[in-house]
Amino acid sequence: MIDAWLKIKKDYSYTMDEDLRAKSDQACRTAEEFTKLYYESLDKRRYLMSRLYMDTAILVWNGNGIEGKDKIQHFWTELPASDHTVITLDAQPVTVPAVANQLTFLVKISGQVRYHEKSAKTFNQNFLITALGDKWKIVSDCFRTQEALES
């Protein structure tokens, strides 16, 4: 009886790990595709940025909060042209049901950014992205350089 119970528990933990593995794989794949699209758009086709955000998305850019995809689009359009290089990328699935009844990932990026041909600065960026229909949309986008940027 006890053996059977242990076996069930083992199977259960096994399937849980499999579930996590699958979610982790998907998070990694999504994160790579997403960041490629995101930084290409941001550097080259900025007028398309709003497509990446949910209607109610929030962008926190060096402590400046911008809410709503139209305002976010406006913010990006007004920002000086940029050139981003991703150095590290990591992604985690969000598994707690309180946050995500649907597939949601945390994406963390560090890299270098250049504005106006000025010297490159290190930046960190964190995303919460979620599946909306067949597309991934940004719930929240938090960008920070490690130091204040000159205009």
Partner: peptide, 17 residues
């Protein structure tokens, strides 16, 4: 390419949001 306006300024740095 969308070109940047010389007048475009960097938003100020805020410590917290």
């Amino acid at each position: 390419h969308v070109i940047d306006n010389e007048l475009k300024l960097m938003p100020t740095f805020q410590k917290h949001f």
